[in-house]
Design a protein around this nucleic acid. Structure first.
Lengths: 362, 362
DNA sequence: TGCTTGGATGGAACCGCTTCCACGGAGGAG
DNA sequence: CTCCTCCGTGGAAGCGGTTCCATCCAAGCA
């Protein structure tokens, strides 16, 4: 491959001039510029990103660190990130954290110097030391789906979301409301389930109901675990009439358990999820929606601002209750009851009503 | 940040020695190595990837060019890529092509020199010129979901898949089988729909049936377009009893149309898709499955081999018919009829039966 | 004892770009 | 006409590594 020197030689100019043409920094006379451009064309010259990065100290790349495929919601966030970054001149390097142990290791060994200019961390909790290292390397960090004092981020109020979901069930007349969520202090260090549960308990107490320990089931963030937990709940002598799951993922497990136990939803059991992943829309799951794609886009935007030298800022996302067809008043009541529909109807209604489409257009 | 020179100074050795310790290339005496390591520790030294890349000519990064979010299947492929690459020492840089126009532009302006060592192209059709440019830059390319003479790739036999799907419908006793697929020569240059249609026609002809033009509907690769096409088909004086859609995405559109027209699936209409995206599993869609994640992993593997200097190889993926609950014999026949089940049952059966889970474990 | 050999080490050259500094020449002001 | 600007330009210095070559020293051998 040709270098800037060969271009300079062919055009009969100095390397400085070629560089100036490439970056149109200072004025270069029209005729010179033309000659240089012709030489570039003739040699099919393409500047080396590595050399440029070394020289300027900027890589024009941002890193995105996330447990991408453990959670469909993260993919939606990533979409927001790439959309926002597409027009920014920055490229994206992915750091996928697949297993929790990895999380820490990746963080600590993350080779960033000379590789990325900024880092977006999705859902994972960086430690102070790690943040300091990045800060020391002059790499701004923005958190997505994580609130941390002193670090800019995009987050939502999980506790408020928990209250929102629970209040919806209370408003429908439910009193025995169960919770299915993550084991707390899990390997990845996610805390959203915990906060959502706090909101759940707060809403119950505000309504004069005492949270009952036997109605709160915590387990690994897997659908089968949620299904098992829900099965236990349905097997209680006085089973709950509603379940608030800490994520849509787990809510699907609850729906499975209900189906297996022959418990009709929403007639005999109401289910509320959290996140509003694509599947929730298809399944007609009532859920607390957070703008996933927008969170990624907003995070990217904050990072770009920081990269441009702006002051670090944070952003709180709005949560919205999306009432679909898995919630209704407790059996026998009839208030607000949603007619029982086949899943297919539900599915199709969902698909046709929701303006947001997961799959785009070719 | 500290440099290799400061480390050398602190350890009282030359820069060469520090470099040797970093790369444990040639032997360094135990005591020297120790001193260097201590200095590295003390200074929190981290080598600059840019400098290293410039010096060695290798970036330890591979690029992945794909229309990621236009198609859920691509995300599954990406997962395979990152899984395979995780342990390889290579990082991943994403080049997302969101709009077709972009495709060409991205390809042509793709700044790769000094940025990536190899490129994985998913679904998109690179032109000869573009491949030559990459080849000239010494960057191996591997295609995923694309077959191209002279370029290594991972692909499946779309035509055979089309035959497979159609044969399944023929075996069930269908004769009026429609096809819903992509407009040919579309903006992205995808050709899989065309090949699948060819397989569809071949299967019909092999069964002694002449493909009927009015039963083949081509349109943009969007669900609403597929829905409209299916609606037209169902409105024919003699409507088809089965539809083969060129992708699951479009098959879902067909299901929508059937629901809107009050046509029961599979009793009055059988539907077969293609790809086996996650949603297909949830909806009980009969489909031609291709191992999406494996295709990405295999592509990554081929690229790694090429990067290691191996001879370029290609790999053909096996296609499998996944019979679920959207296909049955034509009405009145009864052979092989699948009992009509609610969508929820279908959904849950699908979820519980399929070993493959989209969402992993935390 | 003197010479060879080879392992450990220091350091210069180089990777390809940006940037700064110095310089030449044209044009304007006095 | 002379001097001063200022624009356009060439080229060297550096960015921070790797690598090769020269050097040094100790051990082995005659």
């Amino acid at each position: 491959m040709s270098t800037i020197a060969s271009v300079a030689a062919l055009a009969g100019v100095g390397v400085g001039t070629v560089s100036r043409v490439l970056n149109d920094s200072t004025a270069v006379s029209g005729s010179t510029r033309m000659r240089v451009l012709e030489a570039i064309e003739a040699l099919e010259f393409e500047p080396s990103a590595a050399a440029r990065a070394l020289s300027t100290g900027r890589t024009c790349t941002v890193g995105v660190l996330a447990p991408f495929f453990t959670e469909p919601s993260v993919v939606e966030r990533l979409r927001g990130v790439t959309r926002r970054l597409a027009s920014s001149g920055y490229q994206v390097t992915l750091f996928d954290v697949e297993r929790p142990e990895q999380g820490d290791a990746v963080f600590s060994t993350l080779a960033v110097k000379g590789r990325i200019d900024g880092l977006l961390v999705v859902s994972l909790p960086p430690t102070g030391t790690q943040l300091e290292r990045l800060h020391g390397a002059g790499i701004p960090v923005v958190l997505v789906d994580r609130r941390l004092e002193g670090t800019p981020g995009v987050f939502s109020d999980d506790e408020a979301g928990g209250r929102l979901a629970t209040q919806h069930l209370l408003d429908l007349g439910h009193e025995r409301i169960a919770f299915v969520g993550d084991t707390e202090n899990g390997p990845f260090g996610f805390t959203s389930s915990e906060a959502r549960r706090a909101g759940y308990e707060a809403a119950l107490q505000a309504a004069g109901l005492e949270p009952r320990p036997e109605l709160a089931r915590l387990g690994p963030h897997r659908r089968d675990a949620a299904r098992a937990a829900a099965a236990e709940l349905l097997g209680l002598s006085v089973p709950p009439t509603a379940v608030f799951a800490a994520s849509d993922h787990q809510a699907l497990g609850v729906l499975e358990a209900a189906a297996m136990a022959g418990v009709q939803v929403p007639e005999r059991l109401s289910v509320v999820g959290f996140d509003d992943i694509e599947l929730a829309r298809y399944c007609g799951l009532t859920t607390v929606a957070q703008p996933l794609e927008a969170s990624g886009a907003r995070g990217a935007e904050l990072l770009l601002e920081a990269l441009a030298g702006g002051a670090p800022r944070s952003h709180e996302l709005r949560l919205d209750l999306q009432v679909r067809s898995t919630t209704a008043s407790p059996a026998g009541d009839g208030t607000n009851a949603v007619e029982s529909r086949s899943m297919r109807t539900r599915l199709l209604n969902g698909m046709m009503r929701e303006p947001k489409q997961f799959e785009g257009e070719r």
